[in-house]
Computed example of a mutant assay.
Amino acid sequence: MTGISLNLPEAMDVLRDYIEHEQALTAQIELAVKEADQGNFATDDHVAAMRARRIAVAQRVHPIHRNRRDAAQGLESS
């Protein structure tokens, strides 16, 4: 056990965020497969833009994850 407990509303928020993220990734994969089947392939600029969006999303961390990250790094959460 990590020593971090979740109350039900926080757990539901975490699960909801995870499900939304997985649905977005699935939609992106399905679109990429469809485009590849049509002979459309990403340019280097498209790949760079996708990476930038993924980094931006990863940086918008839910507060509970931020607390876990800070705890793992030995930082005091505010």
Rank of each mutant, 00 (worst) to 15 (best):
R60H: 03
S78L: 10
L25Y: 06
E76P: 09
L8G: 14
R69W: 10
E35I: 01
N7F: 05
V14D: 05
V33L: 13
R68H: 05
R53S: 03
N40E: 06
T2W: 11
I64G: 02
R53I: 00
N40D: 04
T26W: 15
A42C: 03
L25E: 15
R68M: 09
D45C: 03
N40H: 10
Q38E: 13
D13R: 13
T2M: 15
Q38N: 12
F41W: 07
A71M: 13
Q38R: 09
A42G: 02
D45L: 06
G74H: 02
S78W: 09
K34A: 11
D70W: 07
P63C: 03
A49C: 01
R51Y: 02
H65N: 05
H62I: 08
K34N: 12
D13K: 15
Q23H: 12
R60D: 04
D44Q: 11
A48S: 07
Q59C: 06
E20A: 13
Q73G: 08
S77H: 08
R51V: 07
E22M: 13
K34W: 11
R53F: 02
Q23L: 13
L25D: 11
N7R: 10
A52Y: 00
G39I: 01
A52N: 06
V47Q: 07
P9A: 03
T2R: 11
A49R: 03
E35F: 00
A48P: 00
E10I: 12
D44A: 13
I4S: 12
H62C: 01
E76C: 08
I19G: 02
D70V: 08
A24G: 08
Q23V: 12
A58Y: 01
S78Y: 15
A49E: 07
N67A: 05
R51K: 06
E30C: 10
Q73W: 04
R69D: 10
K34R: 14
A32L: 06
I64S: 10
R53T: 03
